[in-house]
Design a protein around this nucleic acid. Structure first.
Lengths: 260, 260
DNA sequence: CGAATCATTGATTAGACTCAACTGAGGTGG
DNA sequence: CCACCTCAGTTGAGTCTAATCAATGATTCG
């Protein structure tokens, strides 16, 4: 992976605070000279990638972070939206009681930070799950583009809409499904998202631990383990550590849709 | 309750389709002559009521509906936002598998339909839980106001932001809390909302059945019953059918915040 | 090469669901 | 006006799902 001119290597703790001082940001704002910033999103015409096309203009620079790096800290002011160029990340919220829960699992091609777009304050901590590269789209720049271009505003709304839909779907999942169904529905959702971005829809590598997957689905890690084993035994999926192969997608779908 | 000039009585099935023909809507658009449309929102300066003040200008007319009336049908195009002037309602979503879940419980003073603001399509069915009165704010009108007034756009964002926060909070609740905590946290949330609107924060009447409350909290109605009885026995709340009295708010808070 | 975390499986437990019976409130029609 | 019906609410008994506790490989990382 060759480093490009506009790229910087970050290994500190908080990207927004430590790694992106104002001086650097000002330089990065120069609009010209950054080509092919977002190849992962130039793919099929899903709503998200359509919006991504336009968001391309807002990209100021790229950053690389190492696994475990905190991209955004809960409570921070929204300075920028991020698009994952390569890699993956999770976003984690906290209850008033101190419980943590993984709220989202994002893969290459997806846009982060949307949950903060209205409040302008992040309410979850975003962490890279592997060495990753992000496109940074400063929010003031996005606002200017949105004012100039009415269509661009529409693209933003499309992204925001997807975000709301995603959370509501998650709420339905947590409120109505049993453990088996949740995992099946998680895998199918992931499959769709990989497909929409041109990756294999039936073979992928999970970048989260069993514990993190459990947290996302409202389950404990042992339960997630057992379910993986069970689906494997039943021939619905292939499992080898974090490598997943979907074998009987139809059966998975039926499982996810089954009424109790 | 005396009927005002701009008010109409509705008893059909779908408000947006049946009860509000285009002719009537055109008449209702006349901006003048409707005073004191929204007293419930002229109260303390919560973010929501601040936004409400501005939204006041967008109110075109009021409608009254009877208990059980469907205000918005899932899948319908977003024509207007609604503010509850008096009464209450629920919004219900459906999984791909056909399961239904109550997603929201709205009381007087709150604004409905926000979940559709970005997509422009409602993804849940909204039903009145008692005889209620709503302020109707046609969306085209809202858009015009938002373009003219930058602050108004901010107020809309504040509402949208609350909506996203609410759903995320619900997701955390469903993902991390046990049954007892969920009910406690539900009651406290409701208490806060009543207080914010100038009603009693420690005595209120639930307008949902035990089954509907259970659906909202991801529980079965028998479980909700038992929990009410238990909290009653323990002296945390008073329960008489749907009339609830919060007795030991601190203990409730501790219960809701307790780790496991 | 340890130390630590992750993954897996078994045994047991606890919490919520299911099924069932009963009460009471509200609504309807004779 | 009352008998009847339906549905909400409550409580008990038993079941089952997922959590907890525990032990052991497998990986990863410094």
């Amino acid at each position: 992976m060759a480093a490009t001119t506009a790229m910087q290597k970050v290994t500190g703790t908080s990207l927004a605070r430590v790694a992106v001082p104002r001086a650097l940001r000002a330089v990065a704002h120069t609009p010209a000279g950054i080509g092919g910033k977002w190849p992962a999103l130039s793919l099929p015409s899903t709503p998200e990638s359509a919006a991504g096309q336009r968001l391309n203009d807002a990209v100021a620079r790229r950053v690389r972070v190492t696994k475990g790096h905190v991209l955004v800290q809960r409570g921070e002011h929204l300075d920028a939206l991020y698009a994952i160029r390569s890699g993956s990340c999770k976003s984690v919220s906290t209850t008033s009681g101190g419980h943590e829960q993984v709220m989202e699992y994002h893969i290459a091609g997806e846009v982060l930070g949307l949950e903060a777009m209205v409040t302008r304050t992040h309410d979850s901590t975003i962490t890279a799950l592997e060495d990753s590269e992000f496109c940074v789209m400063p929010f003031d720049r996005i606002e200017i583009l949105a004012q100039q271009d009415h269509d661009f505003q529409g693209s933003l709304n499309a992204l925001l809409s997807r975000e709301i839909g995603r959370v509501r779907k998650a709420m339905l999942m947590l409120g109505t499904m049993r453990a088996e169904q949740r995992l099946a529905s998680f895998l199918l959702d992931l499959s769709d998202r990989y497909q929409a971005r041109g990756y294999s829809s039936h073979e992928f590598v999970l970048r989260m631990t069993r514990r993190e997957i459990g947290s996302l689905l409202g389950l404990k890690c042992e339960t997630v383990c057992r379910l993986f084993s069970q689906l494997h035994r039943d021939g619905l999926i292939g499992v080898q550590g974090r490598e997943i192969r979907l074998i009987d997608t139809l059966a998975l779908q039926q499982l996810a849709d089954s009424i109790v």
